[in-house]
Simulated assay, not measured.
Amino acid sequence: MRPPRFWAAGADHPAARCLAPLGAAYGALTARRMDRPGAQAGCPVLCLGNFTLGGAGKTPAAIAVAALLVELGRRPAFLSRGYGGRLTGPVRVDPDSHAAVEVGDEPLLLARHAPTIVSRDRPAGAALCRALGADVIVMDDGLQNPTLSKDLAWAVVDAGAGIGNGRPFPAGPLRAPLERQWPHVAGLILVGDGAPGAAVAESAERRGLPVHRARLVPDGADLSGRRCLAFAGIGRPDKFFETLRGTGAVIVQARPFPDHHPYRAAELAALAAEADRLGAELVTTEKDAVRLPAAFAARIRVLRVRLVPDDRAALLRQIRQAL
């Protein structure tokens, strides 16, 4: 799905006001659900979620947190719902045999870094994590899911988008009213720069919550001076295009697609033909690449990114306290 433009146009936009009653009902139901007690996992559970629908950088943040846990001598495992995949789980993700249509695109990325379990039933997924030897569970998403008790939950916020118009879905991007979500988080991970995110960070700091500022850093690809046809089906494709430009690449055409977009053969053929016409290389995100057929993936460049916290020591301190 593509987020509607009015989500970023202010709370007084006519469409937002018209949908406000539905948003109030949806937000109230989600908030009540968040307040329910969850099952104990038998080991610490760290959750990387977000206040809104759509992407915010949760997966790179989860990978960064898992790396810090390994540094502390722990054995983390990732737990994901597997959005976009058909397997309900619990199942361990094998990136060599599973496809995105089975387990979702994000779990395939996570599984390259630590054991990863996909499970719609989070407590059952946590039990499998423990059976595989994990002594701490890192949840990618699930802030609004109450079925598993969390020892530490961060809200990951894309600074360029913030919380949009501040209204609950469908009037805006919030999953529940922000005031009802604050009690469920122990801090913020603010990705990138931007006034929308700065406003959320100020609100967190007024509540005494730590704000861990971080940025996405390109990892590995040398694209400086290269002509690129960039395409991305993520929560905010413009963020990818900005990162790609920051490497020195010359974007001759940028093609945004909806988040988790299942690319059709005709779309891929059109992208390849356009790249040939422009004398450009096809470049996309790592998350998009795992959704592409192998024959097409072989001709594209992938811009990998990693999340780098500005104050790594502060993030480590909060992790240690939770453990």
Rank of each mutant, 00 (worst) to 15 (best):
L110I: 08
T116K: 03
D121R: 04
V118Y: 03
V136R: 02
T116E: 01
S119R: 07
A134K: 00
L110F: 05
R120Q: 15
L132E: 14
V136Y: 00
A126C: 10
I137N: 03
A131C: 13
L108H: 14
L108G: 02
D140E: 15
G125A: 10
A111T: 06
V136L: 15
C129N: 13
I117H: 00
G133H: 06
G133Y: 05
M139Q: 08
A126Q: 07
A126I: 12
D121H: 14
L110S: 01
H113W: 04
R122L: 11
D135K: 13
G133V: 11
D121W: 03
I137D: 03
V138D: 02
L128P: 06
H113F: 07
G125V: 12
A126P: 07
L108V: 14
T116Q: 07
S119Q: 09
R120M: 05
L128Y: 10
H113I: 06
P107R: 03
P123H: 05
M139R: 08
D121C: 09
G133M: 11
I117M: 07
R122N: 06
A131G: 12
A114S: 08
V138N: 04
D140P: 14
L108D: 07
D140L: 03
I137T: 14
R120N: 04
M139F: 10
I117P: 00
R112L: 15
D105E: 08
C129M: 14
A114Q: 06
P107F: 11
P115M: 13
P107E: 08
A124R: 10
D135A: 12
A111K: 00
I137C: 11
R120I: 13
P115K: 07
L128Q: 11
L108S: 02
R130P: 03
L110N: 00
A111G: 05
P115S: 09
D105S: 02
S119M: 13
T116M: 06
V136P: 00
C129R: 00
H113N: 12
P123D: 15
A127K: 10
P115Y: 06
A114G: 10
P107Y: 09
A131P: 11
H113Q: 08
E106P: 05
P115T: 06
R130T: 13
D121G: 10
P123I: 09
L132H: 14
A134R: 00
I137R: 02
A131E: 15
